[in-house]
Protein backbone atom coordinates (compact mmCIF):
# COMPACT_ATOMS: atom_id res chain seq x y z
CA UNK A 1 0.00 0.00 0.00
CA UNK A 2 1.00 3.61 -0.29
CA UNK A 3 1.85 6.05 2.46
CA UNK A 4 -1.42 6.97 4.15
CA UNK A 5 -0.40 10.12 5.98
CA UNK A 6 2.18 12.80 5.54
CA UNK A 7 4.48 11.86 8.37
CA UNK A 8 7.43 13.81 7.06
CA UNK A 9 8.31 17.43 7.45
CA UNK A 10 5.56 19.45 9.11
CA UNK A 11 7.61 22.55 9.91
CA UNK A 12 5.76 24.75 7.46
CA UNK A 13 2.45 23.71 8.95
CA UNK A 14 3.67 24.33 12.45
CA UNK A 15 4.95 27.76 11.49
CA UNK A 16 1.46 28.64 10.27
CA UNK A 17 -0.48 27.03 13.06
CA UNK A 18 1.76 27.12 16.09
CA UNK A 19 1.18 24.07 18.27
CA UNK A 20 -0.51 25.41 21.33
CA UNK A 21 1.03 24.51 24.65
CA UNK A 22 -1.47 22.83 26.95
CA UNK A 23 -0.96 23.91 30.53
CA UNK A 24 -1.73 21.83 33.59
CA UNK A 25 -4.85 23.86 34.25
CA UNK A 26 -6.30 23.16 30.83
CA UNK A 27 -5.43 19.53 31.31
CA UNK A 28 -7.15 19.54 34.67
CA UNK A 29 -10.44 21.13 33.65
CA UNK A 30 -10.51 19.64 30.16
CA UNK A 31 -10.34 21.46 26.82
CA UNK A 32 -14.02 22.28 26.55
CA UNK A 33 -14.31 23.75 30.04
CA UNK A 34 -11.06 25.63 29.59
CA UNK A 35 -12.59 27.32 26.56
CA UNK A 36 -15.58 28.28 28.71
CA UNK A 37 -13.45 29.73 31.47
CA UNK A 38 -11.36 31.71 29.00
CA UNK A 39 -14.59 32.92 27.39
CA UNK A 40 -15.79 34.10 30.79
CA UNK A 41 -12.77 36.30 31.20
CA UNK A 42 -13.53 37.97 27.89
CA UNK A 43 -17.25 38.76 28.27
CA UNK A 44 -18.07 42.27 29.60
CA UNK A 45 -21.04 41.03 31.64
CA UNK A 46 -18.98 38.44 33.42
CA UNK A 47 -16.17 40.91 34.05
CA UNK A 48 -18.65 43.24 35.76
CA UNK A 49 -20.15 40.30 37.64
CA UNK A 50 -16.76 38.99 38.70
CA UNK A 51 -15.59 42.43 39.86
CA UNK A 52 -18.77 42.90 41.91
CA UNK A 53 -18.27 39.52 43.55
CA UNK A 54 -14.58 40.24 44.12
CA UNK A 55 -15.47 43.55 45.76
CA UNK A 56 -17.78 41.72 48.12
CA UNK A 57 -15.09 39.15 48.85
CA UNK A 58 -12.69 41.94 49.80
CA UNK A 59 -15.31 43.66 51.98
CA UNK A 60 -16.10 40.35 53.64
CA UNK A 61 -12.47 39.60 54.39
CA UNK A 62 -11.75 43.14 55.63
CA UNK A 63 -14.94 43.46 57.69
CA UNK A 64 -13.07 43.67 61.04
CA UNK A 65 -10.99 46.53 59.64
CA UNK A 66 -13.83 48.40 57.96
CA UNK A 67 -16.21 48.05 60.89
CA UNK A 68 -14.30 46.96 64.01
CA UNK A 69 -16.31 45.17 66.71
CA UNK A 70 -17.04 47.00 69.96
CA UNK A 71 -14.79 44.79 72.05
CA UNK A 72 -12.11 42.52 70.60
CA UNK A 73 -13.75 39.42 72.04
CA UNK A 74 -17.32 40.35 71.23
CA UNK A 75 -19.27 38.38 68.61
CA UNK A 76 -18.80 40.58 65.55
CA UNK A 77 -22.00 39.31 63.98
CA UNK A 78 -24.19 40.83 66.65
CA UNK A 79 -24.64 44.41 65.59
CA UNK A 80 -23.71 47.10 68.14
CA UNK A 81 -26.69 49.18 69.23
CA UNK A 82 -26.61 52.74 70.36
CA UNK A 83 -29.34 52.71 72.99
CA UNK A 84 -32.81 51.25 72.82
CA UNK A 85 -34.97 54.06 71.47
CA UNK A 86 -37.38 52.98 68.78
CA UNK A 87 -36.99 55.97 66.46
CA UNK A 88 -34.29 55.43 63.79
CA UNK A 89 -31.54 58.02 63.84
CA UNK A 90 -30.47 59.67 60.60
CA UNK A 91 -27.17 59.21 58.83
CA UNK A 92 -24.22 60.94 60.38
CA UNK A 93 -25.66 61.11 63.89
CA UNK A 94 -23.17 60.63 66.66
CA UNK A 95 -22.47 57.34 68.51
CA UNK A 96 -23.40 57.84 72.15
CA UNK A 97 -23.48 54.51 73.91
CA UNK A 98 -21.68 51.27 73.16
CA UNK A 99 -19.30 52.98 70.75
CA UNK A 100 -16.92 50.73 68.80
CA UNK A 101 -13.33 51.96 68.19
CA UNK A 102 -12.95 54.19 65.16
CA UNK A 103 -11.36 52.33 62.24
CA UNK A 104 -8.03 53.75 61.04
CA UNK A 105 -9.42 54.79 57.64
CA UNK A 106 -12.16 56.91 59.08
CA UNK A 107 -10.31 60.07 60.07
CA UNK A 108 -8.08 60.49 57.02
CA UNK A 109 -11.05 59.85 54.73
CA UNK A 110 -13.67 62.07 56.36
CA UNK A 111 -11.56 64.47 58.44
CA UNK A 112 -13.98 63.80 61.26
CA UNK A 113 -12.80 62.83 64.73
CA UNK A 114 -16.02 61.36 65.99
CA UNK A 115 -17.26 57.92 64.87
CA UNK A 116 -20.81 58.41 63.62
CA UNK A 117 -23.60 56.18 62.33
CA UNK A 118 -22.55 56.35 58.69
CA UNK A 119 -25.77 54.83 57.35
CA UNK A 120 -27.91 55.80 60.33
CA UNK A 121 -29.54 53.43 62.77
CA UNK A 122 -32.58 51.23 62.54
CA UNK A 123 -35.40 50.78 64.98
CA UNK A 124 -33.79 49.76 68.27
CA UNK A 125 -30.63 51.74 67.39
CA UNK A 126 -28.82 48.98 65.50
CA UNK A 127 -26.10 50.50 63.30
CA UNK A 128 -26.98 50.00 59.62
CA UNK A 129 -23.38 50.39 58.41
CA UNK A 130 -22.39 47.41 60.56
CA UNK A 131 -25.34 45.47 59.21
CA UNK A 132 -24.25 46.09 55.62
CA UNK A 133 -20.56 45.27 56.17
CA UNK A 134 -20.93 42.18 58.35
CA UNK A 135 -23.94 41.02 56.35
CA UNK A 136 -21.58 40.35 53.44
CA UNK A 137 -20.07 37.45 55.34
CA UNK A 138 -23.48 36.04 56.18
CA UNK A 139 -24.52 36.33 52.54
CA UNK A 140 -21.45 34.46 51.31
CA UNK A 141 -21.71 31.86 54.04
CA UNK A 142 -25.37 31.08 53.47
CA UNK A 143 -25.22 31.39 49.69
CA UNK A 144 -22.20 29.15 49.23
CA UNK A 145 -23.05 26.60 51.88
CA UNK A 146 -26.68 26.17 50.83
CA UNK A 147 -25.70 25.95 47.17
CA UNK A 148 -22.93 23.46 47.90
CA UNK A 149 -25.15 21.29 50.09
CA UNK A 150 -28.01 21.27 47.57
CA UNK A 151 -25.54 20.53 44.79
CA UNK A 152 -24.03 17.56 46.63
CA UNK A 153 -27.42 16.13 47.59
CA UNK A 154 -28.81 16.68 44.09
CA UNK A 155 -25.80 15.13 42.33
CA UNK A 156 -25.75 12.05 44.56
CA UNK A 157 -29.52 11.59 44.31
CA UNK A 158 -29.59 12.12 40.55
CA UNK A 159 -26.59 9.84 39.93
CA UNK A 160 -28.11 7.02 41.94
CA UNK A 161 -31.37 7.43 40.09
CA UNK A 162 -29.70 7.40 36.68
CA UNK A 163 -27.30 4.60 37.59
CA UNK A 164 -29.92 2.12 38.77
CA UNK A 165 -32.60 3.18 36.30
CA UNK A 166 -35.90 1.35 35.89
CA UNK A 167 -38.20 1.24 38.88
CA UNK A 168 -35.76 2.90 41.30
CA UNK A 169 -35.34 5.78 38.88
CA UNK A 170 -39.07 6.04 38.44
CA UNK A 171 -39.81 6.25 42.15
CA UNK A 172 -36.95 8.63 42.91
CA UNK A 173 -37.88 11.00 40.13
CA UNK A 174 -41.59 11.00 41.04
CA UNK A 175 -40.53 12.10 44.53
CA UNK A 176 -38.62 14.95 42.92
CA UNK A 177 -41.71 15.87 40.92
CA UNK A 178 -43.77 15.98 44.10
CA UNK A 179 -41.27 18.22 45.86
CA UNK A 180 -41.00 20.48 42.83
CA UNK A 181 -44.74 21.05 42.73
CA UNK A 182 -44.52 22.83 46.09
CA UNK A 183 -43.69 26.53 45.82
CA UNK A 184 -40.18 26.28 47.23
CA UNK A 185 -40.08 29.58 49.11
CA UNK A 186 -43.39 28.88 50.82
CA UNK A 187 -42.36 25.33 51.66
CA UNK A 188 -39.04 26.57 53.05
CA UNK A 189 -40.89 29.21 55.05
CA UNK A 190 -43.12 26.61 56.66
CA UNK A 191 -40.28 24.21 57.40
CA UNK A 192 -38.13 27.00 58.87
CA UNK A 193 -41.07 28.19 60.97
CA UNK A 194 -41.52 24.65 62.29
CA UNK A 195 -37.81 24.18 62.97
CA UNK A 196 -37.07 27.54 64.60
CA UNK A 197 -38.85 26.92 67.93
CA UNK A 198 -37.09 23.56 68.22
CA UNK A 199 -33.56 24.58 67.27
CA UNK A 200 -33.69 28.22 68.29
CA UNK A 201 -33.17 31.33 66.26
CA UNK A 202 -30.04 31.03 64.19
CA UNK A 203 -28.92 30.49 60.60
CA UNK A 204 -29.50 26.74 60.87
CA UNK A 205 -33.31 26.42 60.51
CA UNK A 206 -33.48 28.70 57.50
CA UNK A 207 -30.50 27.08 55.80
CA UNK A 208 -31.88 23.61 56.47
CA UNK A 209 -35.20 24.64 54.97
CA UNK A 210 -33.56 26.14 51.89
CA UNK A 211 -31.44 23.01 51.42
CA UNK A 212 -34.43 20.71 51.89
CA UNK A 213 -36.36 22.35 49.07
CA UNK A 214 -33.49 23.40 46.83
CA UNK A 215 -31.76 20.25 45.57
CA UNK A 216 -34.37 18.85 43.16
CA UNK A 217 -33.28 20.89 40.16
CA UNK A 218 -29.73 19.53 40.35
CA UNK A 219 -30.97 15.97 40.69
CA UNK A 220 -33.00 16.33 37.52
CA UNK A 221 -30.27 17.95 35.47
CA UNK A 222 -27.51 15.52 36.45
CA UNK A 223 -29.80 12.54 35.94
CA UNK A 224 -30.64 13.63 32.41
CA UNK A 225 -27.01 14.31 31.56
CA UNK A 226 -25.83 11.00 32.97
CA UNK A 227 -28.52 9.16 31.03
CA UNK A 228 -27.39 10.83 27.83
CA UNK A 229 -23.65 10.41 28.44
CA UNK A 230 -24.17 6.78 29.46
CA UNK A 231 -25.21 5.94 25.90
CA UNK A 232 -22.30 7.67 24.17
CA UNK A 233 -19.94 5.52 22.15
CA UNK A 234 -16.92 6.35 24.29
CA UNK A 235 -18.61 4.83 27.33
CA UNK A 236 -19.35 1.74 25.26
CA UNK A 237 -15.73 1.79 24.08
CA UNK A 238 -14.55 1.88 27.67
CA UNK A 239 -16.65 -1.20 28.39
CA UNK A 240 -15.22 -2.95 25.34
CA UNK A 241 -11.66 -2.48 26.55
CA UNK A 242 -12.67 -3.82 29.96
CA UNK A 243 -12.80 -0.74 32.17
CA UNK A 244 -14.48 -1.43 35.50
CA UNK A 245 -17.89 0.08 36.22
CA UNK A 246 -16.70 2.42 38.96
CA UNK A 247 -13.98 3.85 36.75
CA UNK A 248 -16.45 4.24 33.89
CA UNK A 249 -18.73 6.20 36.19
CA UNK A 250 -16.08 8.48 37.67
CA UNK A 251 -13.74 8.82 34.72
CA UNK A 252 -16.01 8.71 31.69
CA UNK A 253 -19.56 9.58 32.72
CA UNK A 254 -19.48 12.11 35.55
CA UNK A 255 -16.74 14.40 34.16
CA UNK A 256 -18.73 14.68 30.95
CA UNK A 257 -22.07 15.11 32.67
CA UNK A 258 -21.47 17.39 35.61
CA UNK A 259 -20.68 20.70 33.97
CA UNK A 260 -24.25 21.91 33.24
CA UNK A 261 -25.08 21.20 36.87
CA UNK A 262 -22.15 23.30 38.06
CA UNK A 263 -23.33 26.15 35.84
CA UNK A 264 -26.79 25.87 37.33
CA UNK A 265 -25.26 26.02 40.80
CA UNK A 266 -23.29 29.17 40.03
CA UNK A 267 -26.52 30.76 38.83
CA UNK A 268 -28.26 29.76 42.02
CA UNK A 269 -26.04 31.46 44.60
CA UNK A 270 -27.70 34.84 44.08
CA UNK A 271 -31.15 33.29 44.31
CA UNK A 272 -30.30 31.51 47.54
CA UNK A 273 -29.16 34.76 49.14
CA UNK A 274 -32.33 36.46 47.92
CA UNK A 275 -34.52 33.67 49.30
CA UNK A 276 -32.66 33.84 52.58
CA UNK A 277 -33.22 37.59 52.77
CA UNK A 278 -36.89 37.09 51.99
CA UNK A 279 -37.31 34.63 54.85
CA UNK A 280 -35.38 36.94 57.14
CA UNK A 281 -37.55 39.83 56.07
CA UNK A 282 -40.59 37.80 57.05
CA UNK A 283 -39.06 37.44 60.49
CA UNK A 284 -37.94 33.84 60.29
CA UNK A 285 -34.33 33.07 60.86
CA UNK A 286 -31.66 34.78 62.88
CA UNK A 287 -32.02 36.55 66.19
CA UNK A 288 -32.69 40.26 66.13
CA UNK A 289 -29.37 42.06 65.81
CA UNK A 290 -27.62 39.36 63.79
CA UNK A 291 -25.72 40.72 60.78
CA UNK A 292 -28.13 39.84 57.99
CA UNK A 293 -29.46 42.06 55.21
CA UNK A 294 -32.95 40.63 55.15
CA UNK A 295 -33.39 41.39 58.81
CA UNK A 296 -32.43 45.04 58.62
CA UNK A 297 -34.83 45.40 55.71
CA UNK A 298 -37.58 44.04 57.92
CA UNK A 299 -36.91 46.89 60.36
CA UNK A 300 -38.04 49.27 57.66
CA UNK A 301 -41.50 47.70 57.58
CA UNK A 302 -42.76 49.76 60.50
CA UNK A 303 -41.52 53.02 58.99
CA UNK A 304 -42.71 52.36 55.46
CA UNK A 305 -45.21 55.25 55.62
CA UNK A 306 -42.41 57.70 56.32
CA UNK A 307 -39.80 56.42 53.91
CA UNK A 308 -39.00 59.96 52.70
CA UNK A 309 -37.50 60.42 56.12
CA UNK A 310 -36.21 56.94 56.89
CA UNK A 311 -35.15 55.87 53.38
CA UNK A 312 -31.65 54.94 54.56
CA UNK A 313 -32.94 51.87 56.38
CA UNK A 314 -34.06 50.39 53.06
CA UNK A 315 -31.60 51.83 50.59
CA UNK A 316 -28.21 50.77 51.97
CA UNK A 317 -28.90 47.15 52.80
CA UNK A 318 -31.12 46.96 49.73
CA UNK A 319 -28.31 48.14 47.48
CA UNK A 320 -25.91 45.70 49.10
CA UNK A 321 -28.36 42.89 48.34
CA UNK A 322 -29.10 44.06 44.80
CA UNK A 323 -25.45 44.33 43.79
CA UNK A 324 -24.62 40.99 45.39
CA UNK A 325 -27.35 39.16 43.52
CA UNK A 326 -26.60 41.11 40.35
CA UNK A 327 -22.95 40.05 40.48
CA UNK A 328 -23.87 36.36 40.54
CA UNK A 329 -26.58 36.77 37.93
CA UNK A 330 -24.28 38.59 35.51
CA UNK A 331 -21.74 35.85 35.96
CA UNK A 332 -24.38 33.22 35.39
CA UNK A 333 -25.71 34.98 32.28
CA UNK A 334 -22.22 35.20 30.86
CA UNK A 335 -21.72 31.53 31.60
CA UNK A 336 -24.87 30.68 29.71
CA UNK A 337 -23.71 32.76 26.73
CA UNK A 338 -20.33 31.09 26.68
CA UNK A 339 -21.97 27.67 26.88
CA UNK A 340 -24.13 28.47 23.86
CA UNK A 341 -22.78 26.24 21.08
CA UNK A 342 -23.18 29.06 18.58
CA UNK A 343 -20.52 30.98 20.47
CA UNK A 344 -18.07 28.17 19.83
CA UNK A 345 -14.89 29.20 18.11
CA UNK A 346 -15.40 32.91 18.67
CA UNK A 347 -13.45 33.21 21.85
Amino acid sequence: MTETTPTGDNSLLEATFATRKIGWFEKFVGPENFRILVGLLKTPASIIGLSLILTYVVIGILAPVIAPPVKPNADPYSIPRDGFSSDPKPMGSEWKRNKPPEPFWYKPLTGNDKWVHLFGTSEGQYDIFYYVIWGVRTAFFTGLLVTFATLVIGVIYGSISAYYGGMVDNIMMRLVDVLMILPSLLAALILAAVLTPRIGKSLIPVMTALIAFGWMGYARIIRGDILSVKERDYVLAARVVGVKDSRILFRHIIPNAIFPTLVLASLAIGDVVLAFAALSFLGIGTEVGYADWGQVLSFARNWITALDQYWYIVVWPGLALVFFVMGWNLLGDALRDVLDPRMRGRS
Partner: peptide
Protein backbone atom coordinates in the same frame (compact mmCIF):
# COMPACT_ATOMS: atom_id res chain seq x y z
CA UNK B 1 -12.10 -8.41 26.50
CA UNK B 2 -8.36 -8.42 26.02
CA UNK B 3 -8.86 -10.75 23.06
CA UNK B 4 -11.89 -9.18 21.41
CA UNK B 5 -12.01 -5.53 20.52
CA UNK B 6 -14.18 -3.17 18.58
CA UNK B 7 -13.83 -0.20 16.26
CA UNK B 8 -16.74 2.21 16.30
CA UNK B 9 -18.67 3.90 13.56
CA UNK B 10 -18.60 7.51 14.67
CA UNK B 11 -15.06 8.72 15.38
CA UNK B 12 -16.49 11.93 16.86
CA UNK B 13 -18.47 10.07 19.52
CA UNK B 14 -16.18 7.20 20.38
CA UNK B 15 -13.37 9.15 22.04
CA UNK B 16 -13.84 10.69 25.48
CA UNK B 17 -13.42 14.46 24.97
CA UNK B 18 -12.00 14.86 28.49
Amino acid sequence: RKKIQMIFQDPYASLNPR
